[in-house]
Amino acid sequence: MSAEVLLFYVVGALLLLSAGAMIRSNDPVHAALWMVGNFLLTAVLYLVLQAPFIAAVQVIVYAGAIMVLFLFVVMLLGAQPMTRSEPIAGHRATAVFGLVALVALLSVAVARAPAAGRMPPPLTGDFGSPEAIGQALFTDWVLPFEWVSLMLLVALIGAVMIARFGSQSEDPEETSG
C-alpha cells in the first residue's frame, strides 16, 4: 500500500471525524476550530491529488481569511444560549430520513458511475503547478477570471451595505416579532 493510499484513508477518516465534531459542538468557537482542522486536512488531500496551488489557496483563503471572518462574528455576537428546539413537529426525523436517503442515493449513483473505477493517469510534467494553473487561467479562462473579480467587488459592497445600514430602517413589525 503506497503512501498515497494510506494518506487517503487516514486523512479521509480524520476529515469526516472533524466534520462530525464540528456539527455536534455546542460552542461556535469550538465549531470554528474544528472547521480549521477540517480545512487543513482538506489541503493535505489536495496535495495527495497533485494540486499544490489549490492546497496553498485553501490554507490562505479558507483556513486564513474565512476563518478569521467567522471568529470575528462569533466574538461580536458573544455567547448565546444554544436552543435545540423543534419548531415543526417531526422535523428532525424527517431531516434524518432525507439525509440518509440522499447519501444512499448519491453513493449508489457514484459507485455505479462508469468513471468510478478510473485510476489516476501518470503525471505529465507540471500538472497542478502554479505555472500550469496561471497559464490556463490567463489564456482560456481569462473572461471568467475577470467576472469573478467583479463578483468579489459586488459582494464587498453588498456586505458593507448590509452590515452598516441593514438594521437602520427598523420597522415595528421587525422589532416586535
Partner: peptide
C-alpha cells in the same frame, strides 16, 4: 494497489457533503 480510484474519492466527498447537509438541517 498504489493509487486510489476516482470512485473512492467521490464516496468520501459524498459522506462529507452528507455531514454538512446534516449540520444545515439539524
Amino acid at each position: 494497489m498504489n493509487a486510489v480510484p476516482l470512485g473512492h474519492w467521490l464516496l468520501l466527498t459524498t459522506a462529507l457533503f452528507g455531514v454538512g447537509a446534516a449540520g444545515v438541517l439539524l
